[in-house]
Design a protein around this nucleic acid. Structure first.
Lengths: 225, 225
DNA sequence: CTAGCATTCAAACGTTCGTTTGAATGGGAC
DNA sequence: GTCCCATTCAAACGAACGTTTGAATGCTAG
């Protein structure tokens, strides 16, 4: 505190956002009280309502700070992949890597709150509260459409409804992998350092998801009710 | 109400459990107040504390009622598969089907609360509150070990740490598929009746997960840090 | 009919929640 | 110095929370 040269532009806002990111991840939205949050941030209790307006607006701000840049990066990655590809469309694996990369880059941001945010995000996909799910949904809507059409072109022989489900499965695998902390250690003793080696995780996820997305259809599907 | 012949053994308990199953699924644990819960169940506010002791004990009871039979059924299914298989070990697909079957059977239980419970369960895998995750974790521990060894025998060439991760991915896909309600409709207009056709869902999940679990390793994994 | 017991009930308990208030603070413009 | 405005602060607000209490209820056994 001795050598503070310039005053940061919105230090209080940032301290609140950082504390919220960590506490929402640890205890959920309803489980995190404003008193606990402002205490951890080292700011006054009224600061959240002064700077953000309400608790719900703070939640929204927490997501906007990270999610908007992340999804913008996803579009950039997809542009890059589509520009570089040799054939008429990029491979499924290339599209998957483009989708995963921005998220995994956040994981590597250890001292920044990126890792906290990613775990929070994974949890929020299945958040019970409807307004929060709607918020996430509308933030994802634009990239959802682009990646869906990219995968349709990458897998032209795949029926549309089957592809929709496989994208859904892909989302689930990613969300759960980011959110869950205990289950891997439950299945087998797994070193925490290993958990978030982003390179290794990217390779494992890509292999698993590509194989699942490209899996050939069984005939028995057609005889559905 | 006119023709009630015999009095059910613990009607109030059951009404509470059913209401809790639905409301916990809709609003989460902290988002469901005792007043809302007892109101929906049509019982007195004090009934929960009288019959279960506390809100947390009610949560535990909600899971025990369904999860213990479900995981017992998973062991039976695995026994059956291992007894019937021709070779030294069942195929990965057979093991996966044994794992999925009890869950998907619950989904088909429409008028019973099975469908509500399954969605609740999917959400709870990523529940922020630690005691609840521990509860789920200890309920899963016994079947986890059996299925892990079954898959190790089904995929003897797969490195152990890689397999642990793929089981983790498998869990994630299932949990998210059960929990998420909006995302599929976000990706593409998807009829709700189609969502829970358990047969179709089982086929799609099995195809996706089997391909992911059996995916060949890439060499580049070995050069990890 | 009566005594006993499990259950139900309305009311209240103390605590914690998100939010609001109005005064205090402190740095820049004139 | 003096005003101004953004920000911080301690204190309090009413509402909602999980839980407890003690009386009322209704069935069952003797």
């Amino acid at each position: 505190m001795a050598l503070r040269a310039v005053k940061p532009p919105h230090e209080t806002r940032i301290r609140i956002l950082d504390a919220a990111e960590e506490l929402f991840m640890q205890h959920g939205f309803e489980g995190t009280s404003m008193r606990l949050l402002t205490g951890k941030a080292g700011v006054n209790l009224a600061a959240v309502n002064y700077h953000f307006g309400s608790k719900h607006a703070l939640i929204e701000a927490v997501f906007r700070r990270r999610l908007d840049p992340m999804n913008a990066a996803r579009l950039v990655e997809l542009d890059k992949v589509e520009a570089e590809c040799a054939g008429p469309a990029p491979t499924p694996e290339a599209v998957i890597r483009a989708f995963l990369a921005p998220t995994l880059r956040l994981i590597e941001d250890a001292k920044g709150g990126g890792r906290n945010f990613v775990r929070l995000l994974g949890r929020t996909y299945t958040e019970p509260a409807k307004p929060i799910r709607q918020l996430i949904g509308q933030m994802y809507a634009p990239i959802m459409h682009r990646y869906k059409t990219a995968l349709e072109r990458a897998l032209p022989q795949m029926p549309r409804d089957e592809l929709v489900w496989r994208i859904h499965f892909m989302f689930g695998t990613l969300a759960y992998t980011l959110a869950a902390t205990d289950t891997v250690q439950l299945i087998a003793g797994c070193k925490p350092e290993d958990r978030y080696d982003a390179r290794l995780l990217e390779q494992r996820l890509t292999t698993f998801l590509t194989a699942g997305l490209e899996a050939p259809l069984k005939h028995s599907i057609k005889k559905a009710a």
